[in-house]
Every structure is written in C-alpha cells, then in structure tokens.
Amino acid sequence: MTGQRSDARYNYARILAVAEVEVATHGAQASLEQIARTAGVGSATVRRHFPTRKALLEAVFKQRIHALSDLAESLGAEDDSRAALLTWLRELLDYSVAARGLADALSYEPLGDDSAPDSCATVLVEAVAPLLRRAVADECVREDVTVHDLLTVVVGIALATESHPDAAVQAERAFRLSVEGLSPKGT
C-alpha cells in the first residue's frame, strides 16, 4: 500500500473495516456490492483493492491469523506438547467459529505447497507444524497425524456448527469428541 494516494489508502482501510463487519455477520459469502455501498465506494474500487473474494477474506483475517502464529510460537516452550497443540487448535477453532467466514475461506483455499507464502492457510500450516512435530516426537499424538488432518478437523467443525444457535458450545463438544474419541475412558 505504500506509494498509494491518500484517498486510495483511505478507501482500502474503509473497505476492509466494512468487510470485517459484513463477514462477521454474513460469513465468507458476504455481498461485495453491500460492502462497496456501505463503504461509500463503487464495486470497481472494491475489486481494484481486492480482485477476488479470497483476497478480501485474506485481508480480513490476516491480523488474527498472525496472532495465532505468534501464539503457536509461544506455546512451543510449554512442557506438555499435547496440551500446547490442543490449546492452539482450540484457539483456531474459537476464532473460526467467532469470525464467520474463516473456515469457509480455508475450506476452499488449498492447503498444499502451491498456496501463497503469506496466505492464511500457509501461515497456519507453518505455525502448527512445529507443535505437531513435537507432540508426535513426545509420543502423545499418533505419528500418522498431519497438519492438514488437524486443520481439516477444525475447519469441518467450524463449518458444521456455524449455523447452530450456540455454535461455540457445539464446536467445543465436537472438538472434544474428536480429540478424546467415542470410547468411554478406560476402554
């Protein structure tokens, strides 16, 4: 954004602020036309700053995704590697449920090596990978579990519960079931 005219920087900030509210309310399918109207700009201005819906969603979620990355780094120093991994996954799930649209954005963003280096998915993969490696090395997570498996579980839970009246409670229940399994303790 450096080198842009002040009105372009203002429009970018205004569009992004409106988009954050619209995405929180309507999820990833928030109307780009409504965002433009509310921001007081034309649709072409929105598309000039954010050529695709994915680009807009990436910008909306970028700050929180980087906070999740920072959290993963700090959790790497925890003694209990399984608890550290689960803490991070819960934070990702909580944010995915609260910030409607993130799970949607991640569900259609490839989690492979062809993702952009600063995309939400790439940042999340790079953040959680060391936590998973450590938990596997400590033999408290199965060695065949992958980062993509973990992100798929979180995204799936967030998508499955987002329309529930008490989405956060249902998401936590589904997460607990996926972590603990279906068997009663001791069996």
Score class of each variant (00 low, 15 high):
R53S: 10
A67L: 12
Y10H: 07
V41G: 04
Y12S: 03
R37S: 04
V60A: 01
H49T: 00
S6Y: 02
A30W: 11
I35Y: 03
N11H: 13
F61Y: 12
S6Q: 08
E22T: 07
R14P: 08
T45P: 01
T45A: 10
V18Q: 02
Q63G: 05
R14G: 05
E20V: 03
A59F: 09
H49Y: 00
K54T: 07
A17F: 05
G40D: 07
Q34V: 01
V18S: 04
A72P: 10
V60T: 01
I15V: 13
S69G: 07
A8I: 00
E58D: 14
T45R: 11
R53H: 09
L71E: 09
K54C: 02
R64G: 06
K62Q: 10
S31H: 13
L16E: 00
A67S: 14
R37E: 10
I15R: 03
P51C: 08
Q34E: 13
I35N: 05
G40N: 07
H66N: 15
R47F: 00
E58T: 08
Q29D: 15
L57A: 12
D70I: 06
R9M: 11
L57M: 12
L71S: 06
D7E: 15
E33Y: 01
Q63T: 15
L56V: 02
A44T: 15
T38N: 00
G42V: 10
G40M: 08
V21Q: 14
R47I: 03
I15Y: 01
L16N: 00
I35G: 06
V46T: 11
A30F: 12
K54R: 11
A55E: 05
A8Y: 01
R9V: 12
S31D: 15
S74C: 10
A24M: 04
A28V: 11
V23R: 12
A17I: 05
A67K: 13
N11R: 13
